[in-house]
């Protein structure tokens, strides 16, 4: 069986997988990082979104071996072990952007990628971007609000850092 190694949330990890093992399976089953979820089998729900080399990826649509050598960030890696949330996580909490929490990790990871590429997205751009992230609980109203607020907070944080 092939072996893979990659950097996940800042840590070097490796393991043996089947050629057909999906990245999401490697993350959940080998690494026991269960914050990344599986909501469908047709790569449409976005519950499994992680960052691979800085860009959002549906980890159910990528083989573990394809991620060999790459740098992966999952929802667990955003805030690390501290109590301080990433501004996007904080914005979701402040704006009630989550209910059952199942779509949430994918939503947050996807939203951060959007804002990294478009620092001040309009409501329309946010709704458009979320095409690949399904939420059954919130009706998206508060998710859109959260991402708008999260984008502003990320901008503020960046400005403060500069």
């Amino acid at each position: 069986m092939p072996s893979v190694s990659m950097t996940v949330n800042g840590k070097q990890v490796s393991g043996t997988v089947e050629p057909r093992t999906l990245l999401v399976q490697f993350i959940r089953e080998n690494l026991h990082l269960t914050g990344t979820h599986v909501g469908c089998d047709t790569s449409q729900c976005g519950a499994c979104v992680v960052h691979v080399d800085g860009a959002s990826v549906k980890s159910c649509a990528m083989l573990a071996i394809e991620a060999d050598g790459s740098t992966v960030t999952t929802i667990e890696g955003l805030a690390g072990d501290g109590d301080v949330l990433h501004p996007m996580q904080e914005a979701f909490r402040d704006n009630h952007g989550l209910q059952c929490g199942f779509c949430t990790p994918g939503m947050v990871m996807s939203a951060i990628d959007l804002v990294n590429n478009n620092p001040a997205p309009s409501e329309h751009e946010i709704r458009d971007w979320l095409e690949g992230n399904i939420c059954r609980c919130t009706g998206y109203h508060n998710i859109v609000k959260s991402i708008t607020a999260g984008a502003a907070a990320m901008k503020g944080q960046k400005a403060a850092a500069e």
């Binding site: 269960t34 599986v38 667990e76 949330l85 909490r93 402040d94 009630h96 059952c100 929490g101």
Partner: peptide
């Protein structure tokens, strides 16, 4: 603000499939 959000937002929810 919801008490449950911290664990969901940090990937620490405990759904059935997360249990082994």
């Amino acid at each position: 603000k919801r008490k449950e959000d911290f664990r969901f937002l940090t990937g620490r929810g405990n759904y059935t499939d997360d249990i082994n």
